[in-house]
Every structure is written in C-alpha cells, then in structure tokens.
C-alpha cells in the first residue's frame, strides 16, 4: 500500500482488507465521490453496513418461514404479498419486491442471480461468498442437480427442480418444506430448523 493511498480519507471499515484489485479501488473511488458530493456521508454508510451485518438469517428469514409453517393463512399472505407479510411481523422487507416461493412434494425451488448477486439481505443478511461466485451463478442454471448434490441435497427425479434467476427488482425467499415429526414443536423451535441455505434452496430444512 502506497503512502499516496493513505494520504486521503476513505470510509473503509477498520477491519476491511486492503483493496487488492482494480475493481475494489474503483469501488472506493466511487464511494469517495458520492461522499464528497454529499449524496450520503460516512456515518450513514457505516450505519447501513452495520445494520446489514447484524441481520441473522435465523432471526429474520427463519421467523417468516416458521410462521408460514404454523399458520396457513399467513403462508397464503406471504405467497401473495411477501413485503406486507414480512412487515406484519415487524421486519423490514427492504426496497425490492419480495417474492416467496414454496417447496412442495412436486417442486423444489432454488434461487440465483446470474447477472450480479441480488439477494434478500433484509431477511437473510449478507449473502454467502459462494452465492456471489461465478461458479455458482453460471452452473446452477444449467446443472442445478449437480450443484445441489455438491451441497449434499439430492432431489428425487420425480420432483421438478425450478431455478429462479433473479434479474429485476425482485428478491426471492424459498419456503422449505416443513420436516416430518415436528408437529409438537413451537414456532421458535421450528425456526431453528430453517437454515440460510434452505431459504436459498440449496438445502432442505433441518431435522428435529
């Protein structure tokens, strides 16, 4: 890192690694420009990063899924109008149209964004690194079953694998199937079975 770089202020988080590529430097330069133009300030940027980092899939998305499992009316609401259904639980649905898709004995849903890395951050927090990788994004649309097997998820041939490529201002959350033998479980116990990956579609919900 050159002295020249350290001679100006930029709003990197203190634990942010040093930029190592042209594109990272471009990102920092763009951010500096936006700050200097007064579009937002460093404090707002850091507050946004912090709020996204504090979102845990199991405190947000999993709550939504568990409610849908125990309350058929809520599930219907969630499938019809994801944003309002999420808001009704006191959660922030974000700015893009939230769309819930339901796994059934006939259909297994799986989400990708081939063009970039669209992800329901307000419900699931930061996306995993693999979700943003070129390998996942390019492979999962053409060989989804092979990718699922690498995640340890085998979908029977009689079940349709439906891949959702998220290309517009919509964000997807998968409602995994409720596992067997969970009849007596409370909503919060059920939520603990709902992993982040099960809401992307690369995994099934956990077993009790």
């Amino acid at each position: 890192m050159t002295d020249e770089h350290h001679s100006h202020k930029h709003p990197l988080q203190t634990d942010h690694p040093e930029p190592s590529s042209h594109h990272e430097l471009m990102g920092i330069a763009l951010n500096d420009l936006l700050v200097s133009k007064g579009i937002y300030d460093n404090a707002e940027m850091n507050a946004m990063i912090e709020s996204i980092e504090n979102i845990e899939p199991n405190t947000h998305g999993a709550r939504v899924v568990a409610r849908a499992w125990v309350d058929p009316e809520y599930k219907a609401f969630l499938l019809k109008d994801g944003m309002s259904a999420v808001e009704s639980l006191g959660l922030d649905p974000g700015y893009a149209v939230l769309t819930a898709v339901e796994n059934t004995p006939e259909v297994h849903n799986l989400v990708v964004c081939t063009l970039c890395s669209c992800y329901p951050r307000f419900l699931l927090g930061r996306p995993p690194v693999w979700y943003k990788s070129k390998a996942y994004r390019s492979r999962v649309v053409r060989e989804p079953r092979a990718v699922l097997r690498e995640f340890g998820t085998e979908i029977p041939t009689g079940v349709e694998v439906r891949v959702h490529d998220s290309t517009a201002e919509l964000r997807y959350i998968v409602i995994p199937m409720r596992p067997a033998e969970t009849e007596g479980m409370s909503e919060s116990e059920l939520a603990s079975l709902v992993s982040r990956d099960s809401m992307i579609g690369t995994a099934l919900a956990g077993r009790p």
Binding site: E143, T157, G158, E160, V161, R162, H164, A168
Partner: peptide, 19 residues
C-alpha cells in the same frame, strides 16, 4: 430446462423461471 440446454442432465419437468 431441456429447451435451454441441449443434453440437460435432469428430467423433462425441470425448469427455469426468470423475470
């Protein structure tokens, strides 16, 4: 999927949905 990818590995019912 079988229309998108010649030689698609999965069953005929598999699909892609895109906006």
């Amino acid at each position: 999927q079988t229309r998108l990818w010649p030689g698609y590995e999965g069953p005929n019912g598999d699909s892609l949905e895109i906006e």
